[in-house]
Design a binder for these strands. Structure first.
Lengths: 157, 157
DNA sequence: TTTATTTAAGTGTATATACATCTATTTTTC
DNA sequence: GAAAAATAGATGTATATACACTTAAATAAA
């Protein structure tokens, strides 16, 4: 058991921020890293990486439908993830199976195996349990956080 | 010019969230990816990666002091970054110089070169400009966001 | 219908992440 | 002061990221 570093200032040993928005952007990057690290520790027990888990969840969302690489890519949180190679590794572990698309010969379609469903169910339970233990936040606060994050991103470039 | 995807639901093509906290965690991961992607586009013009830029900023924070690898590591946003190899690449580009520590023969100390200072100044200006254009957020809102992010992380494990 | 364009996915490379291991020091302990 | 433990950093490997490029197939344009 260890005490988590709470304050950003402690976490990155810095107190000099240009303004609150600058601090917020570092805070988001740090919090994302923290979330991923915590989750990865749990997923490792199931032999999964964070991104492999993400692909399995996406496949589950449409199960038993078969999804092509593009359909998976556009649902990924990190868009630039290299989905074909993540699928390669899931195929080796027999958690998904891949086939040629019947309608478009360019596409390959992927779906969960029974093993994939089982591993996903078990790992999801562990991840949810971790989140419940780790994050003590009121529903109202989480709602507010969602609003602020979308306001932050909500603009044209 | 393109319209950014604002809503998380659109960005990851999903509307099924366990609860607001689950949505918030995905929202943080997505927003962090979005911020890093936007910043990396700017940094690429200076031949820098996001992590190389982070190391340069940390060195600037203590300049002209020389920092050992450990001092840099503990200030990184992503703690597991492999600082020795990031420094390797910055040395090749002649943006930093590395020397043996006079006080501890195990340590190597790193400091910015004049070129490093110049590249950092120019790239920081571009990054700040991007952030100003991209993120339209009131100071009060950013403050609130910081409070919520730290509440999210503020717990024991 | 033939060519041109677009699209889907796979491949290659440099960098980064995550983690384990190794070596050379320094510090601690006896 | 010598042996044990801890620390700093380098190194190796598998996976992921970011981006450019290739190939095959589908679609659009001529």
């Amino acid at each position: 058991m260890y005490i988590c570093i709470v304050k950003l200032e402690q976490a990155i040993q810095s107190t000099k921020f240009k303004n609150e928005m600058h601090k917020a952007s570092l805070n988001i990057l740090y919090t994302a890293w923290w979330l991923k690290t915590q989750m990865s520790k749990v997923l490792k027990e199931f032999g999964l990486t964070h991104e492999q888990y993400n692909v399995l969840r996406i496949l589950k969302g449409k199960y038993p439908e078969q999804l092509c690489v593009k359909d998976i890519s556009c649902r990924m949180i990190e868009k630039s993830s290299n989905v074909p190679r993540i699928i390669d590794r899931l195929v080796i572990k027999k958690l998904v199976k891949r086939a040629d698309s019947p309608t478009d010969k360019r596409e390959t379609v992927t779906t969960l195996t029974q093993a994939g469903l089982a591993v996903l169910a078990a790992s999801t339970e562990s991840v949810n349990q971790l989140m419940d233990e780790m994050v003590k936040m009121e529903n109202k606060e989480a709602e507010q956080l969602n609003v602020l994050l979308e306001r932050l991103r909500g603009t044209e470039v």
